[in-house]
Structure formats: structure tokens, C-alpha cells
Amino acid sequence: MSDVAQRAGVSHQTVSRVLNGHPSVRPETRDRVNEAIAELGYRRNSAARALVTRRSDTLGVVTPASALHGPTSTLVGFEEAARVAGWYVSVATVRQVDAETMRKTAEHFLDQGVDGIVVIAPTNEIAQAVAGLDSPVPIVMISSTPDVPPGRHVHAVGVDQRQGARLATRHLLDLGGPVLHVAGPQDWFDAQDRLAGWHDECVAAGIDLIEPVVTGWGADDGYAIGRRLLDSGDLPASIFAANDQLALGLEHAFWEAGVRVGHDVALVGFDDEAGSSHYAPPLTTVRQDFAELGRLATSVMQAALDGGPSERHVLPPELVVRASSARA
């Protein structure tokens, strides 16, 4: 830094301000310092800085070994937001989730000197494992769990899954008739909340409930449910699928049988995953803003490091209406 200051003709403190993005540096001075940094090939020594600040600018992220849209998009959204905020991210992917695995993973991160730990926790077992951790650094759970584990070190952020389900159900109810819910696996918080939101909106509307169908998350599961509904001869007028992959499988089954989605049956999914606007027909769905979720988790982690209280923060979802529910 002294070499950079000498080359740029500024003080050591000015170089420090430029490196830390301080707003008080004049643009021409900042440009001169950045040119000196480029000419000298300067790189900040993170290890030395950590000794002074007692911060490593590194966060550990625990994520389930899943290729599903929600956990994967959550990880990408958080990593991007953390990098913009100046943090390095170290990721641990876990296949077996229990208290001992979570403890060992946390110890692995603590040995690296991380400032905090982020856990992507879509299921009951992951949240329970987090609740058993005794961590000296803050933990931020990205999860729709309704409960934050006790203790000041655990915080939670998520998308309001229940509200998203209510938006989807209300949209279908406005088209007329009862709504069948094809629900995801009930050990997932998202699936629990989407089922509860569907139920609450139907009850609020005074509509008779159709027994929900609980299945997995995949398109194959949706296809199997679609075939079963067709074979029963009792196809509902409206279906709310717990995610877009289930809706894709349902569309396939109905297409094979000559049932027109958007005309004979109205269909809504959840997630607005890439490609859902190109389903046949394009899918009405509930959008989750994973980039904003990542930014929220990053700001909550910073607040936690500054001593903020344990809290739960929730983002609103958005209904995206397309042709699959155009029957009107």
C-alpha cells in the first residue's frame, strides 16, 4: 500500500479509503490510485487484514445436495449478493443432514475463520440440525421455516410461500369452481406453506375443499398425477401445482389426452423457473426473487455481525399470469 501511495502521490490512508470504497475520495484521486494499483499489480493481503480487523470477509454456506430449482437458485442468488458486498463464499454441500454432520460442517468453517455461516434450509431435518448448533458466529438460515431457533446467533430469511399460494389459489378461484392442489413432499417447508396457503384461501372464499394430492417435486410426479386424474374421469376445473416441474408433468399428461390447458382446465405453478414462459401453453406461476433474497440474507448477516437481534425476515412473492390460466 505504501508503494501504491508513493506511485499515486497520495497518502497511505487515501489508498486504504479507495480499497474500502469510501465515498469521500475525489473521482480523479480514485482513478489515480486505481492506475497505480494496476501498474504495480497490488493485491490486498487478506490474511494480514484479518489479523487487524479480526474479520476474514469469508462466509461459509451449507446447502443440501439438490439440483432442484429452489435450493440451487437460492445458492446462486446469495453467492452473487455476497460477492458484491465484498465477501468470499466457501460452500459445503451435504447429502446426509443430521446434528453431527451439521456440527462437523460448522467446525470446518470455523477452522477457516469465517465471519458467519449461512444455511440453506428447505427441510425440517436441516432446520432441526441448525437449532442444535452452538456457534460463536452468526448463522443466517435461508428458509421459509416459521420458527427461528432460540438464541441470538440464528437469523432467518425467506420468501412468503403461504402468501404466494394464496395468490395462486385466489387467481384460480376467480375463474370459478374449486381448486385442486397438487402438493410437494411435506417434509419441505415450502410444500407445507403452499398447502396451507391453498387451504386458507379456499376456506376464506367459502369453497368446498378437494382433497389435496401429495407427491414429489418432479415432472414425472406431475405426469403420474395427471394420468391418474384422467383415468378417474373426474378432472377438476382448476389445479394449483406446488412447483413448475409438477405443472410441466401435468401439462404433458393433459396434452396426450387432448385436454386443453387454459381452456378445459386452468393450471398454475410455483417458482417461475427458467423456461416456464415457453411451456405449451405458457405457465401462470408464482415468482420468487432469488437475487433479492440473496441481498436480504447478506444484509441480515451484516446486521447480525454488528450485534443485531435474532429475527425472521420475509420477502413477498409475485403472481405471473400467462395462458395456462386464461380460461375466462
Rank of each mutant, 00 (worst) to 15 (best):
D193F: 10
V213N: 00
G197V: 09
H181N: 07
T215C: 13
A205P: 13
H181R: 02
P178Q: 10
T169N: 07
G197F: 03
L167G: 02
A168E: 09
A204Q: 07
L172S: 03
P212F: 06
I207E: 03
Q186I: 15
R162P: 03
A183R: 02
W198H: 13
I207G: 00
V214N: 02
D193N: 11
C202N: 05
G206Q: 06
L172D: 01
T169A: 08
G177A: 13
R162G: 12
H171F: 06
H199E: 15
W198T: 08
A196M: 10
D200Q: 10
D190G: 13
P178C: 12
C202W: 00
V182G: 01
L180Y: 01
H171W: 04
L173G: 07
C202T: 08
D200V: 04
L175T: 04
W198Q: 05
R194F: 08
D200K: 01
V159N: 03
F189A: 04
T215I: 15
H199C: 14
F189K: 00
W188D: 05
R162V: 13
E211T: 15
V203H: 06
R194D: 08
L180Q: 00
D200F: 02
P185N: 07
V214E: 06
D160V: 10
R170G: 03
W198K: 06
W217F: 15
T169M: 07
W188N: 04
R170L: 11
V213D: 01
A165F: 01
G216I: 11
D200Y: 02
R166D: 05
Q192F: 10
Q163A: 14
D208A: 15
V182N: 01
R170H: 11
D193H: 14
